[in-house]
Amino acid sequence: MGKLCVGIFGTCGTQMQSPWRGEFKKFYRERGVEFFDPQKKDWKPEDADIEAEHLAEDQIILFPITAATYGLGSLSEVGFSILQAIKLDDRRDFIILIDKNLDESLNDEKLVKESLRSRALVRKHLEKLRLDNIYVVESLDEMLKMSVELYELAKRKNQFAKFNPHKIHENRC
């Protein structure tokens, strides 16, 4: 089990491109759900260490790849994270949303073609994996609801960490 924290990864960009982040964070705060959002106005290269740590250790990882951006970097991150999930000792949960289409405002023909190709490939590869800790959802609403439910389950399970002689389940966000 990872850190009891929801890692909010996936589509970044401007607030206009990813307004869902603010909505998720507000919802989490109202319910006492601990989270990490790597997107911030003053991001510096040194922040990559913290971001990588959360990506490697948070109990619940969100990867919404919305229609608002090409999402090529986020699609790559999904692949890296799934490789981690395949580890036998990894009991973290990954919730993935990959919009099948792009916003009409994205009109670089080459990037649109590559993004749609990558989205289709990643979705198909995810469908073929037989891992019970990877969830592919169809909407941000489904992602938000599932992330809170998985957080509550992990929180309940964390109560038993004191009985684990290795103390590996006591991490918090």
Rank of each mutant, 00 (worst) to 15 (best):
C12E: 09
I60R: 03
R21H: 06
I60P: 00
E109A: 13
D132M: 03
S76E: 15
D58S: 14
P165L: 10
D37T: 10
L4Q: 02
G13L: 01
L111Y: 09
I65E: 08
F63A: 00
L153G: 06
R123W: 07
E51M: 08
Q17G: 00
A161L: 09
L62N: 00
K167L: 07
Q159K: 15
V122W: 04
D58W: 02
F36C: 01
I96K: 05
I8L: 03
F80G: 13
R31E: 00
E46D: 14
S105F: 11
Y135H: 14
N158Q: 14
Q17F: 06
K110E: 14
K157C: 07
K113G: 09
Y28C: 00
L83V: 14
F163E: 01
K162Y: 08
R123L: 01
L129F: 13
K124Q: 15
K100I: 00
R123T: 04
Y151H: 05
E51Y: 13
K40V: 05
S115K: 07
A56Q: 07
E77S: 09
F36H: 12
K145S: 12
N101T: 15
Q17T: 08
D103L: 10
S81R: 14
G73C: 08
A154V: 06
C12W: 06
K145C: 05
K26P: 02
G73H: 12
K157Y: 11
T69K: 12
A48Y: 15
T69Q: 12
F36W: 02
N164T: 06
L140V: 02
L129N: 07
T66G: 03
L83G: 13
C173G: 12
L97Y: 02
F80Y: 11
L140P: 09
L126S: 01
I50E: 14
R21E: 04
Q159R: 15
F94T: 05
D47E: 01
C12H: 12
S74W: 07
S76I: 13
K87A: 08
D89Y: 07
I98P: 10
A52G: 09
E114I: 08
K44L: 10
I86V: 06
G13H: 00
K162Q: 01
E138D: 15
